[in-house]
Design a protein around this nucleic acid. Sequence first.
DNA 1: CCTCGCTTCCCGTTCAATGAGAACTTTCAC
DNA 2: GTGAAAGTTCTCATTGAACGGGAAGCGAGG
Lengths: 256, 256
Amino acid sequence: MANSASGESVTERLVRVLATFSSDRTAQTPSEIARRAHLPMSTAHRIVEDLTTAGLLDRDPRGEVRLGLRLWELAHRGSEVLRLREAARGPMEQVQASIREHTQLAVLENGEALIVERLSDPQAGLNIARVASRLPLHATSSGLVLLAHAPDDVREQVVQGPLRRHTAHTLVDPQAVRHALAEVRATGWAICPGMVSEASTGVAVPVRAGAGRGAPVVAALSVVLPREAEAPRAVAAVLARAARLISSALPDGRAA
Amino acid sequence: MANSASGESVTERLVRVLATFSSDRTAQTPSEIARRAHLPMSTAHRIVEDLTTAGLLDRDPRGEVRLGLRLWELAHRGSEVLRLREAARGPMEQVQASIREHTQLAVLENGEALIVERLSDPQAGLNIARVASRLPLHATSSGLVLLAHAPDDVREQVVQGPLRRHTAHTLVDPQAVRHALAEVRATGWAICPGMVSEASTGVAVPVRAGAGRGAPVVAALSVVLPREAEAPRAVAAVLARAARLISSALPDGRAA
DNA sequence: CCTCGCTTCCCGTTCAATGAGAACTTTCAC
DNA sequence: GTGAAAGTTCTCATTGAACGGGAAGCGAGG
């Protein structure tokens, strides 16, 4: 754009505006957006107007801004995530039926685990993650699975980057993380007691695109158990079976 | 942007690029995008690159472009559609279980019906519509329901606009449509035999935001029956019950 | 070897986007 | 009722980012 004080592309700014929305803030005033996206008032107002006429945002009569229908529509017109979710729904429901805890599916996105599907039993314990929210890679079972099978450069970048401590059990030493990842690769699952929150244990397995051990890992399937639950390895076995079901429903992974 | 030949806003163009994707075309080359979005080659390439670094698009190793994870993520961070889908899933599954045909939920979007959720039984007949696809308002049961409860100006614009004929039973006369709409309002449902395709009958009812007859209509719940099925009115009654369930799970509609 | 289509790089032109500011409206506290 | 605070809608001069034609590079296919 002409004259941007900070030398950003228009696209960047549009995304920044859209990214000010979250599961908690689904409606906000243009001024709030300006503040949260660090944009000058008048600029924010103009961008909001543009996005509104494009349908990516909607303004309700009160003047508050929400994410627009068209954004949802575009995202549903053929993202990979949709195929993945579709393939995963059945197997995830089976897992859910037999284990009765939160069941999650996550993919690797820009150094974090992005949750793409989640089934939760009302009877199950408290839950942190929601669909479309992100989790740290080094401190969650899904994250470790994704990281273990990520390309070398991505893995190293995360391992060497700052590793935030969530609980006393969080792995914050690069070497410790590398060890854990090697074990995940060897066993085929990750079991993480109390790494994010003291009270729960995460169990996760890789989901591959297509059959075969060598097929690329595209997602991690996980459940969150209460810490005191025994038999996490039995749970891992259940997950592994479900993961194979998902894999076989997925187009073969030479594509990705 | 500086120099745009056609006086469009940047945002418009970005959306045009994103809109070249569809359920059928989930991957395309930048050049294809250029052609379909009617953009000069170099411009399309640049925009694709921008959108890619912003995460709204992804390029696979082959060079083909796909919708990016981040687009999906943003759309799932608090659109109204999500609430609606969530509230509707249970009741829709009940409908599905008792009727065993395609069950759909649609909202009004810019002069068309946008399908936001769909459950389909493998045993059910052929199906046209997918999630995130659009249907004409004047020729479908969902469409007529939405149109019947739309603001006056929207309704008149559609009724007076061109009404495409799909089959011999499609309503293409403005006055006929107005009559149909009045009946939909009076009875509380729409039954459309053979309007889109000769072989099927659509049945739809309004879904309101919150309890009470006066609450605003936010969606249409419908099923597609084989034309020869008897008892469409019994089906409408089942739908109406489900719609009330959905409504009660929805935040009260003074908001919208 | 040549052709054809896609992609990438280059570069002069230009006007859309920009953002400070002022005026106006709504909201709320007292 | 009055005043302050916050949000919104304008205006407008400035300017560099976006634009797009063109050429060069790349690769597949005949």
